[in-house]
């Protein structure tokens, strides 16, 4: 995907279902750490709507530069190097907005997030969605969708997961699921999916804690 296309997608984010859900989940003046904060658009939105005190971590230089333009306090770095330097419970919320599937040590980073944050919000594209299952079944090639538009050789998504997978990892690691929303992502707008979410939801957002 080219830079321009990414920019355009970024702009649309403001009206995105996940952004609205995250904004609605967070209280006024909360302390928020956004892992893989991209261009800082979510933190900026949270600052405008919720007057939060935000921090971000981002790996890509161009995005870090945009964060600073947006007045977002961002640290240029790799999540796989961990969050050791943050004290326990130093944030009200730690956010993985479509980040959990791009890091190498997903579980380790998730556990670290649960240590430094009182609550953790995880959003990810659901790999169990029927279109993906069908696409793989019939084409025999790595599936693509609106949420997962990459080729196998350039995808940043190296730890793809399904709604069930996430529930399972929570159960096995004694992570409490506070809230869960599964939805169908359609041109930025979303419709929540209540029946068979692992099959019908293209995206999911979980609010979890230890």
């Amino acid at each position: 995907m080219d830079e321009e296309k990414i920019e355009r997608m970024d702009e649309q984010k403001k009206n995105r279902y996940d952004y609205k859900f995250i904004v609605n989940s967070i209280e006024q003046h909360a302390k928020v750490l956004d892992l893989g904060c991209g261009r800082g658009s979510l933190l900026k939105l949270l600052r405008e709507k919720r007057q939060i005190e935000g921090r971000g971590i981002e790996l890509v230089q161009g995005k870090v530069q945009k964060c600073i333009e947006n007045g977002v306090s961002v640290v240029h770095g790799d999540l796989d190097e961990g969050l050791k330097h943050y004290k326990d419970k130093s944030f009200d919320y730690v956010i993985f907005n479509e980040t959990i599937q791009v890091v190498k040590n997903s579980l380790l980073v998730l556990k670290e997030a649960l240590r430094v944050g009182k609550k953790v919000i995880v959003s990810f594209p659901n790999f169990g969605h029927w279109q993906i299952r069908f696409s793989y079944f019939f084409s025999g090639m790595m599936p693509k969708s609106r949420s997962l538009p990459y080729e196998w050789y350039n995808t940043p998504n190296i730890r793809l997961l399904t709604v069930k997978d996430f529930r399972d990892v929570c159960r096995k690691n004694h992570i409490r699921i506070i809230k869960e929303v599964n939805y169908m992502n359609l041109n930025g707008r979303g419709t929540s999916v209540a029946i068979f979410p692992n099959l019908f939801a293209s995206n999911s957002i979980f609010v979890v804690s230890k």
């Binding site: 870090v64 600073i68 977002v72 306090s73 961002v74 050791k84 130093s90």
Partner: peptide, 21 residues
């Protein structure tokens, strides 16, 4: 520089960090 950043983060100080390639 990361060492500076981590020391600041431990104190909850508002810090932005940029490593210019």
């Amino acid at each position: 520089s990361v060492e500076i950043v981590r020391a600041l983060q431990r104190n909850g100080i508002d810090v932005a960090y940029f490593n210019i390639e």
